[in-house]
Design a binder for these strands. Structure first.
Length: 203
DNA sequence: GCAGGTGGTGCACTTACATCA
DNA sequence: GTTGATGTAAGTGCACCACCT
C-alpha cells in the first residue's frame, strides 16, 4: 500500500535507490528492454513513493486520470521523479480503479442475480398454487384472489388483485387469457447488449 | 488522396520487490 | 528468522492514433 510506505527508512527517497542502481533500473527505464549491457546483474529495485508524492499524484489523478506531456513533466519536476515514473503511476492507478470498479459491478450483478432467483422461486410457487386451485374448481369458487402484484407484460402497469369481483387494472386482453398459459404472454424484451464502458452501472 | 513508416500513449498481463501478519 | 499473502512499481507486448513522407 502506498499509504504504508513512509519515508522514515529512507527507502522511498526518490533518487536514493535509482541513482545507486543507475546501471540497472534507471537504464531500463530510459531504454526499455536493453539490459544486455549491464552484465545481467541488474536486480530490479523498487522505489516506494513517499506519502507526499502519492498524495500529490492522487490529487492530480482525481482532477484528470490521464496525463499530457506538460502535466507529466511538471509533476515529475514537482515530485522529484522521472516522467516515466509519473506515467507508470498513472497507468497502475487507472488499472487499480478499473479493477475496483469491476469488483463493485460483480457484486451488484451477484445481488441482482440473487434477487431474480428469489423472485423466480416465488413466481414458480405461485404458479403451482394456481395450478392446484384450477384442478379443484370447488376450492377455486371460494378462494380469494391472489394478493400478489401482477404486472401487465405489455405496458408494465401493476395491478393489485385485491377483490374477487375484478382484477382492477388488468387489461381485457390479458384477463381473457388463461392466466397459466405462459405461451400467450408477450416475451420480455431482451436487453440489448452494449459494449463494456468501464462500468455498466455508471450513469 | 492513399499507403507505409514512426513516435506517443493506453491497456492487459506479468514480474519483481517491499511489507506485513 | 522464515514464510506466504498482498500491494505496487516497473517491464513487455500489442493496438490505436496522429503525423509525416
Amino acid at each position: 500500500m502506498v499509504a504504508d510506505c513512509d519515508n522514515d527508512n529512507g527507502v522511498s527517497s526518490p533518487n536514493s535507490i535509482v541513482s545507486s542502481i543507475s546501471g540497472g533500473v534507471a537504464k531500463a527505464l530510459s531504454s526499455q528492454g536493453s539490459d544486455d549491457e549491464d552484465g545481467g546483474e541488474a536486480a530490479r529495485k523498487k522505489l516506494r513513493l513517499t506519502k507526499e508524492q502519492a498524495k500529490v499524484l492522487e490529487e492530480t489523478f482525481k482532477e484528470h486520470n490521464t496525463l499530457n506531456m506538460k502535466r507529466k513533466q511538471a509533476l515529475a519536476e514537482e515530485l522529484n521523479l522521472r516522467p516515466r515514473q509519473v506515467e507508470v503511476w498513472f497507468q497502475n492507478r487507472r488499472a487499480r480503479t478499473k479493477l475496483k470498479q469491476t469488483e463493485v459491478d460483480c457484486e451488484s450483478l451477484k445481488r441482482c442475480c440473487e434477487n431474480l432467483s428469489e423472485e423466480n422461486k416465488r413466481l414458480q410457487k405461485e404458479v403451482q398454487e394456481l395450478r392446484a386451485l384450477k384442478l379443484s374448481p370447488h376450492l377455486f369458487m371460494h378462494m380469494n384472489p391472489p394478493t400478489t402484484l401482477t404486472m401487465c407484460p405489455s405496458c408494465e402497469l401493476v395491478a393489485v388483485s385485491s377483490t374477487s369481483s375484478s382484477s382492477t387494472t388488468l387489461h381485457v386482453a390479458a384477463s381473457n387469457r388463461d392466466p397459466l398459459d405462459l405461451s400467450l404472454r408477450q416475451p420480455v424484451p431482451a436487453v440489448k447488449p452494449r459494449p463494456f464502458e468501464g462500468s455498466i452501472f455508471r450513469p
